[in-house]
Design a protein around this nucleic acid. Structure first.
Lengths: 198, 198
DNA sequence: GGGGCTATTGTGGATATCCGCAGCCCGTCT
DNA sequence: AGACGGGCTGCGGATATCCACAATAGCCCC
């Protein structure tokens, strides 16, 4: 679910933030340590992260680094009591979404969280489309993938046959299988599908 | 030229930074006020910007906003004596490249500037390619543009003829003109050209 | 009025693409 | 052994695309 995940080792703060966001209809989950969230997180975890920087054990910054290293793309908002400019700058340059100092303004923080949630939702919608394409690509045989690459590179069947050392007819067969599996009807559609998804 | 543009109303600082960067073989230009740079800047200005935040008259932040509003994409590094976290965060979120507090470490600053210069060079190379494509598109007639869009959308000539209410032969002629002017040989190449440039 | 650009259409032929029908080889799983 | 999937190939026909040659028409500019 699309949830605000609050990671802070201070229970009082988690509760206060929990109340704040629940009163604004933002679903909240609380985590008492970086480790806890790091272990619980999966690729399906949606929403955004509100991360205290200073915590017992693993710091918020370290959690952030580890999450990114594991491929987590969740938008992260740092929360800090005594933020220094260099760490804020470096966090943002590393891809954090925001950096907020305590004491914060309730409305301001809520706005930033809602922005981040919307961003995550959009990002997920984009990636969902790409994942569908990736699945179709995965269903291709190796030969079909080879042919597809050459088709998308703009080669004619004749040339493809030559490059792969097979007959034109075989290329046509693979090509048609590719179109079918990728659910397109022309090479142009295929190209759009692949270049938009990366 | 790819130059570091230093905007600071303190001549002593401009000089000091000038020496620092010239000693590292980084071409430097100094500007005594935001207004001066704002007036002198053109789309051809390459390199990066080192911007003091607190200045007489227009502040660095305001200059930044105005430049972006005018379409300037130069990477900007802010330099500030007493940076507060919120302004650093907001500058970065608005697209500034970096935010450095004085006193700064010489080597560190030089590194950041060199990074920014490299970024600008890459960005310019990308845009140069896109500009070439844009110029070719501009050389098309309206009809040719219409046909091109439908071709890139994956439509067959027959369908295009139908949608435009003209004969297939005419579509073929336009299509061939498009290929010629866009310097491609197949619809797939055209599609790649247009989807990569946006 | 003539020249140039754009848009339009036709004829006809060379290529390319799209497909169904058929058959062969090979490795895997049952 | 037999079934199945993947890869390879040939034949032939329906479509589509690519092009040279040829022509008509409106518009703008010199």
């Amino acid at each position: 679910m699309t949830t605000l995940h609050i990671v802070d080792d201070d229970e009082a703060i988690r509760d206060a933030l929990g109340w704040l966001f629940q009163s604004r209809s933002v679903p909240v989950a609380g985590w008492a340590s970086a480790r806890e969230f790091l272990d619980a997180w999966t690729a399906e975890t949606a929403g955004c992260l509100l991360l205290d920087i200073r915590m017992e054990g693993m710091s918020g910054l370290e959690l952030f680094d580890r999450l990114r290293a594991q491929g987590c793309r969740l938008p992260v908002i740092f929360l800090t009591g005594h933020g220094d400019v260099p760490s804020a700058v470096s966090a943002l340059k590393k891809g954090a979404r925001d950096f907020v100092e305590k004491p914060f303004n309730d409305n301001d923080l809520v706005d930033r969280v809602i922005e981040a949630l919307a961003f995550d939702a959009e990002q997920r919608a984009r990636e969902a489309g790409q994942a569908g394409v990736a699945a179709r690509i995965a269903s291709l045989t190796q030969r079909e993938r080879q042919v597809m690459e050459l088709v998308v590179a703009g080669r004619l069947n004749k040339v493809i046959a030559d490059e792969l050392g097979i007959s034109m007819r075989t290329v046509e067969v693979h090509r048609s299988h590719v179109f079918e599996k990728m659910r397109v009807k022309t090479a142009v559609e295929l190209t759009r599908l692949l270049t938009s998804a990366g």
